[in-house]
Design a protein around this nucleic acid. Structure first.
Lengths: 337, 337
DNA sequence: TTGAAAGCGCTACCAT
DNA sequence: ATGGTAGCGCTTTCAA
């Protein structure tokens, strides 16, 4: 179909012609620290401006690094993911990179396809926020001189940099909070995503509780979403021996859980029920929720990513752990009832 | 600093060498509908696999279209924006494009910088979700053969494609809903962003009300956010003659407004106060809010974008308007009190 | 300071 | 079906 690429992009050659200089001069004008006389420089800039010329970074990327960073992510609409993408794109841009977003599913095949795209576009680095890429493919990325940074993924593959929050700390701390509030029947709400992060929050919480001699009822009600939180609450409070303190491995789950607990079962928070979440999404701070939770320190995490990018030698097989920050609000009693 | 680009990307030449064929053969193996014998094809694929070769799309983009689409967006963490980015990246990918996200501020200078980036990377098209680019720059993009698609921007620049929801309809309909519910003192809550969309929702609502002989109190309390909605409620209910029906030009504003109205002023919704929003973000459907609102039909919008991309000739100066979909929930009484 | 020329990795064209 | 070659737009090296 009409392949008449009518007005094509303007090239350095066109600028050179119009300015009456060599195309080298044009190139030099646009590369920092090259030697051009003020006169030619002005002529070039003028011509470039008139023509609407912009340096072709694709062609530039043929010789050196492309300055492209790929973000592999799923569930972008989730508040925590949206935030991650936001801070990452922002900080990457600030350090002179441009971000390609690959919106993927979490299954291995989709993630693999995403990684291959990453290679196709000669990205300097790939940042994986979702799913777990097969080791062999990571190998390939590395062999191609690409950096691979895994966030909250836990698979500590050889050569890839791993970065994540301390889930164990959150699990332990959540237990402490609930017990101090005098909760006696503990529950844990999780999703069927079963990512390393979620599983770790769960197991640490459950084991820490077991160490204190208290048992935890674990409920898993679907994907990581508000609706699953609702569903979990319906199940949990539909039975006898309902919990009076729960740790939801995600804020979104916690919010749905709270809504059903209050509206369908008439519970008052934190009097009848204490809830702890994880992530500190914006909604957790809304007046209707005031959820006590753990904040993922996204800015420090993004800084770390940029840092890794700027110092590739540091990147090799490094694992950085960042402490989540407890955020006290009103869904947990400060002391015993 | 160590510029030792150790293991560089593997090129077609390397594959050719290993497979014992010409580099043309390699190229052909990876282009659809080229003629290669099954034997060479196998040899090439084997070598490519062993080496971890991936076609360089950057180099490919030197001759033909790059298949890159740039998304210029601000406020990415806002639920509605996050959704937009999500559906757009998803649909663009499905049609063989790759998305570059440029996270920008809404001021003209930032948006201009974003558009220039777009040009630098030879994007086939630029989709602007936030801010209003200067006409001259759009001109430049078009002159370079790039498509420019403006979403909910209203500036109908020559040659750019415009796409947006029918804000006027929402303004009119919101008024109808509130009056039918028997609301007598109407309010409109907006932000200081003053984008074309927001302004249109406001003016249509206010003028339609005036036509019915009722006056509207307009409150503008800051940026488009939950907090501004809260602030607006504090102002509005702090005065005598508080409204009993409000149209918030954005769901986020509506949610903050509702929380303060209920918790700080003891109002019951929809008995004492009816609220209408716009966007239909996920949170609007949460049990705590059940907000009656207008849905932005994001999927159809994204489809339209893709369609425009695939048929560039259609794109010229076209304006497509999409109807928002009223979503009935419980923040407005179905009839008079 | 400047221009010519090589080469980055690729695809398309042209012979074979 | 295959290999050689030109050329996409750029930066860099080399002479002048």
């Amino acid at each position: 179909m009409s392949d008449l690429k009518l007005p094509s992009f303007v090239s350095a050659q066109m600028v050179a012609d119009r300015a009456g200089v060599s195309r080298s001069a044009v190139s030099r004008t646009f590369t920092d620290g090259a030697s051009v006389s003020e006169a030619t420089r002005r002529k070039v800039l003028e011509a470039a401006d008139a023509l609407g010329y912009h340096v072709n970074h694709l062609a530039r990327g043929l010789r050196e690094r492309s300055n492209i960073v790929c973000l592999v992510v799923a569930d972008m609409t989730t508040p925590i993911r949206a935030r991650m993408v936001d801070v990452l794109t922002r900080k990457l841009q600030a350090s002179g990179k441009i971000t390609m977003v690959i919106n993927t599913e979490t299954d291995t095949e989709s993630v693999s396809a995403a990684l291959r795209q990453t290679l196709n576009y000669r990205a300097d680095a790939t940042v994986v926020l979702s799913g777990t890429p097969p080791a062999s493919l990571i190998e390939t990325c590395l062999a191609n001189g690409q950096q691979v940074i895994l966030i909250n993924r836990d698979e500590r593959l050889q050569g890839s940099s791993n970065l994540g929050v301390d889930n164990a700390m959150a699990g332990r701390e959540a237990l402490f909070l609930l017990r101090r509030a005098g909760c006696e029947r503990l529950g844990l709400i999780t999703s069927n995503a079963r990512t390393a992060s979620l599983v770790e929050r769960e197991t640490v919480f459950v084991e820490a509780a077991a160490a204190k001699g208290v048992q935890v009822v674990v409920t898993e009600a679907g994907p990581t979403s508000y609706e699953s939180g609702q569903e979990a609450a319906r199940r949990v409070f539909g039975r006898s021996e309902a919990p009076d303190g729960v740790f939801c491995v995600t804020d979104l789950l916690a919010l749905g859980f709270m809504d059903v607990a209050r509206q369908d079962f008439g519970l008052t928070i934190p009097d009848d029920l204490c809830v702890v979440g994880f992530d500190d999404i914006e909604q957790a701070g809304w007046a209707s929720y005031q959820l006590t939770t753990f904040r993922q320190p996204l800015n420090p995490m993004a800084d770390e990513v940029v840092d890794l990018l700027l110092q590739p030698q540091r990147a090799v097989s490094e694992r950085r752990m960042i402490e989540p920050i407890p955020v006290w609000r009103r869904s947990v009693r400060p002391g015993k009832r």
